[in-house]
Computed example of a mutant assay.
Amino acid sequence: MTPAERFFCADAARARGDAFTGTAPYGRVWVLIEYRRGWPADGFDGLDLEPGVKELVFSAARASRARVLLVRRPGRRRPHGSDRWAVLRHDESGALRQQWGSWRRDDDLAAITTALRSPGDRGGPPVVLVCAHGLHDACCAVRGRPVGRVLSKRWPDLVWESTHVGGDRFAANVVVVPDGVYYGGLDPASSITVMEEHLAGRIHAGHLRGYTTLHPPQQAAVAAVLG
């Protein structure tokens, strides 16, 4: 198959006019693990970590119904220094909470399990995740990485590339956590507009996939009101 003939699910979805309203996966808790090397196709599950630590983190995340994502800053990789981890939570009261740490050795990741059992700190700036997991789906790299680059130039402290967030055919996908808001069908220009509005407290209905604190019918209903 030549490059011109290569199939991209995001191109096909746009050509079909696939609707993405109400497609945000439900969830209130996210575990982010900075990993600057290449990402396996299955993300955290595929990492070559110390088995005991990996199972500890996985079990704690499952008990908290947390989603585990690998993250990294867009563009040039930092060659040295500790990586970071975070537990981000949108709790039942609507409070947005964060807890951050760092890791060098696999054993350091065990601190995530403690963070998952604590509420975390209120406030803090939102984290903007741009799915750029090309080994999972090429659309995420082709469409996601340009969006990650342009957003990181504007908001370098907020933006991270992430592993698979769901809905490859809606790439480029951006998730704002712990707010729990999914946006899809973005390109570099529209992503700037969407994030400007989001950070100003407004939701861009035209690219809204949904709120992760709501189930699909509720997400669709809210999108209809906003639209």
Rank of each mutant, 00 (worst) to 15 (best):
A66R: 01
R67I: 01
V68L: 14
V68T: 10
V68C: 05
V68P: 02
V68G: 01
L69Y: 03
L70I: 04
L70T: 03
R73L: 07
P74A: 05
G75P: 09
G75I: 09
R77N: 08
R77V: 13
R78A: 14
R78Y: 06
P79C: 11
P79R: 13
G81V: 04
G81S: 08
S82P: 15
D83A: 15
D83V: 07
R84K: 15
R84H: 15
W85Q: 05
A86D: 12
A86K: 13
L88Q: 09
R89W: 04
R89H: 10
H90D: 06
D91Q: 07
D91M: 06
E92M: 12
E92G: 13
S93Q: 11
A95Y: 07
A95M: 13
L96I: 02
R97I: 06
Q99K: 07
G101S: 08
G101E: 03
S102I: 12
S102D: 13
S102P: 14
W103V: 03
W103S: 03
R104P: 11
D106P: 13
A110E: 15
T114H: 13
A115R: 01
L116F: 03
L116P: 02
L116T: 02
R117M: 11
P119E: 04
G120A: 03
G120K: 02
R122Y: 07
R122M: 11
G123N: 11
G123W: 11
P125V: 08
V127R: 09
V128T: 08
A132D: 10
H133I: 08
G134D: 10
H136T: 09
H136M: 11
D137H: 09
A138L: 15
A138M: 13
A138E: 15
C139F: 11
C139E: 05
V142K: 15
R143P: 11
G144H: 12
V147I: 00
G148P: 02
G148L: 01
G148A: 11
R149F: 01
R149Y: 01
L151T: 00
L151N: 03
L151E: 00
S152V: 03
S152K: 09
R154T: 10
R154N: 05
W155M: 11
P156V: 00
E161S: 00
S162Y: 08
S162K: 08
S162F: 08
T163K: 03
H164L: 14
V165K: 05
G166Q: 12
D168E: 11
D168R: 04
R169D: 06
F170K: 03
F170H: 11
A172T: 10
V174K: 02
V174T: 04
V175R: 04
P178L: 00
D179E: 07
V181H: 01
Y182M: 04
G184C: 14
G185D: 06
G185M: 06
G185Q: 05
P188M: 04
A189I: 14
A189C: 12
S190A: 14
S190H: 13
I192H: 12
I192F: 08
T193D: 14
